[in-house]
Design a protein around this nucleic acid. Structure first.
Lengths: 196, 196
DNA sequence: TTCTATATAGACTGGTCATTATAATTTTGG
DNA sequence: CCAAAATTATAATGACCAGTCTATATAGAA
């Protein structure tokens, strides 16, 4: 009980949050260390290659964490159309599991690699590929659910990508407009889009 | 003839390209000045409030430029479904108007405020609102086209937002995966989505 | 000419960046 | 209890950051 969170984990948790919230370039190592109450020496002890190695770890952990979250949500409802629609609606009120978040919109950003992906897509191949892997993994969860629901392979793959595009785009719009509406609207349209 | 491009315009053009390609925080004023062959004195002469004021101008100009581009494309085909589908396909091979761009994917980024929007959505209200205005303007072009095509007001507004979400999301995925596929796939699905 | 506004030129500021090096400390195993 | 390993502490590095400042043109008007 009362298990201590290791310095390494505190660094990763804080870094993940800040990278996703502010971006890779706007987040300084000093800020990460201060907010995680970690000493500077420790950062380069656990991540000898520095900031990029830390960010890579953050992206990879987000990939598996979000994949797990999507799977858990989708498994709750058999019908793929209804389960996906329901999942998108739940993105909004979702991540208040983390206690210290005030705006639910910030919570949305914290389960996304959208910003880091765009920042690094033309300047850092290592991080770009990590984000690419995350997007592929998440898209694949939708595709699998559609396959289980009886869609043929080609349709399931295309629609998986369409859903992933819509979700990522609606996240951008919801964050930029500080409004739930984009996410709610695409959730509302899921039944029509998948009715093929 | 042989009209000289003013220093102010050279700064704006270079800054717009770099902000959209690398992001707001990753782009330094020195890089902008060097690539536009402009002196530092001029930057603060034309933009006394500095980097933020420059970025604001870049976003606002992108808003009207992209709006104009979308309108020009959509007007070419009467049927809203077909015209929007066609437009999305054309985003890919689109902006080779600018001569010095090599990758067509970079061209995509250069007509987007996606990255700046995410970077500033939780840290800079001025720039966030400028991006919000751009997204709203572009979404409204789709909505208007759907209204002209006989969709009722509510449907047109919802679907306008869905299209804008899909396009922005597919841009993120296409850039991250360095592949045209996401944009092509959503274009392919437009007829089904708008068939209501 | 002289005056004034517009524009360019570049050095300089204080601060922060990621990273490195080295020393001190704590923890752990024998 | 000691020695080795794991971790933390601190200082300093050079590069770059946005922004300020002063000097210098350049042009048209009086």
């Amino acid at each position: 009980m009362d298990e201590e969170i290791s310095t390494r984990d505190r660094i990763i948790n804080t870094a993940t949050r800040l990278f996703q919230l502010q971006g890779y370039h706007a987040t300084g190592l000093n800020q990460i260390l201060k907010e995680s109450n970690a000493p500077k020496g420790s950062l380069y002890y656990y991540f000898p290659k520095g900031k990029e190695e830390l960010a890579l770890e953050c992206i990879n952990l987000t990939e598996v964490l979000v994949e797990k979250t999507i799977r858990e949500k989708l498994v709750k409802i058999d019908d793929p159309v209804e389960s996906i629609r329901n999942f998108i609606e739940e993105i909004i009120g979702n991540t208040n599991l983390e206690k210290n978040e005030k705006l639910s919109l910030n919570s949305i950003k914290i389960v996304s690699v959208n910003l880091i992906a765009l920042e690094t897509s033309s300047t850092n191949e290592t991080l770009r590929k990590a984000c690419q892997s995350a997007f592929n993994t998440w898209r694949n969860v939708y595709t699998e659910k559609l396959l289980e629901g009886g869609f043929n392979k080609e349709k399931a793959e295309t629609l998986g990508m369409v859903i992933e595009s819509m979700v990522e785009g609606a996240i951008v719009l919801s964050l930029t407009t500080k409004s739930d509406t984009p996410l709610l609207k695409i959730a509302e349209q899921i039944p029509f889009i998948l009715d093929q």
